[in-house]
Design a protein around this nucleic acid. Sequence first.
DNA 1: GCCGTTTTCGGCCCGACTGTTTTCAGTCG
Length: 570
Amino acid sequence: MNNAEIADLLHEFADLMDLKGDVFKRNAYRRAAQNVLELDGDITSYYREGRLESIPGVGESIAKKIAEVLETGRSPELEDLQAQYPPGLIELTQVPDLGPKKALRLYRELGIQDLAGLKQAALEHRIRRLEGFGERSEKKILQGIELVERNSGRMLLGDALPIGLAVESYLRQNGIEHVSVAGSLRRRKETIGDIDIVVGSDLPLEAMRLFASYPRRDAVILQGPTRSSIRLEDGTQVDLRVVPISDYGATLLYFTGSKEHTVELRRMAIQMGYKLNEYGLFRKDDGSVVAREEKDIYRALGLDLVPPELREMRGEIEAAKDGRLPDLLRSEDVRGDLHVHTVMSDGHATMRQLAQEAKRLGYEYLGLTDHSSSLRIAHGLSAEDLLDSVEEARQVSEEEGIVVLRGSEVDILEDGSLDYPREVLSQLDFVIASVHSLFHMPEEEMTERVLRAISDPEVNILGHPTGRLLGRREAYKIDLERVMEHAHHQGVALELNGYPYRLDLNDLNSRKAKERGVKLSIGTDAHALEDLNHMSLAVGTARRGWLEKQDVINTLSLAQIRRFFERGSS
DNA sequence: GCCGTTTTCGGCCCGACTGTTTTCAGTCG
């Protein structure tokens, strides 16, 4: 069993504790699950070495449960608990305003066991007859079920970010000074639940009116004194909260989260004799104000300002305490995009158009990486066409005043060999090697396949190293630990691919790579001119992975990056 | 169930909102 499976098991314990009504045990299991999921290394080695209890949140009892599951593949205690409740009960709590308490009552008093049963009971007006429920609750439940069925998935960062930033800049351009996206969007999480915007204004009605007249809004769903929601033309909902300017900093901190991070800040506040809420940091005894701005609140708690992307309870509090927060990568550090497709394979823009756009974006160089010949579906280039385009790249470079690097995204074939012969690859500026086929290999085979590929001295970057597609395809099974070790040894960079469905490596694996001394290459995998803008998604993910400028090869100057690409010829 | 600049027991974040209630439990963020 791997870390994720153990984490799932602990989450199941947590869900069941929720039903039992023990929120403290629920929280304990959740914390343990989170830490197991983000564990540096394999949980089985912790078990073998008797170090399970060194994992934060894992004590004697949870360690025993983990050990038992690793040994026997089963957890009798979990099975006993599961037997006490129908398996569909947890899904009931996905319906808004239905928590464990109500779900349990619906089960006990009406025999409702799952979403389907809930829907039927609501339609038959059986719910409104329960004490504490009424007609309105019943209607809300029906609406809630519809929401769960229709919208169980979250939005991609790539969809939410441009929308959120556009609304933000609209408000700013119309005179609102204190405005920011909040929530998981501000933290640049790979998927987003809601687009939340926080405004600080002493003229709240004005701000609300401005928001309600956003040009691309389709309808105003809700408009109150402090909260408004609009629906945009494409169906996306955007929520706005307006607070007095004096509360803006604390409110933004609060709505940015993560929940776990802000809970920790509040705990620290209490220990110091303070109280932290969405209005500010106050002295517990006399209620006087200690701090109101984000950075002042952090400082008063003895912390450096934690960038939003790091607020995930992954060690940022300790780092902020010790002045060890990373100096995170910035968009302006990136000197070129290293993963771009042209019309020669499956892209929509020509080399020249891409060069012009890259120059407009302020890049010094642009790496073109069309697909190789075996990838028929993407019109992979023949070796001849590829080599012919090397000369074209030189010409475009001269004429457009930006360096166009001719590379390739070469397929890693079944046996780990590459899709072009070495004498072809050696004439290119750089090479990305990627897996595009046979995703279901056993882990050992896939790992060997990739290791062999990056052993080739012509390869400079391993493209989208896990192959996952958000909401569409799981990562393929591969021992990233070994891949990172080998990449480090070989002087090969791992890619952080900024394509909205990929973001691969993800935040956690990017951080692992960095910690192992592996360099990252961030690229957009652009197939059209506007896709070059996906660099912001890659940078956001890189920041969540604690990456700094020196961890990323395409922050290097042209001369330096050429040297990096020369690894094989030395 | 975990954990210790108050600690091996007694806490474990805080406030708003909603719908159902005449004083509040449950849920959410």
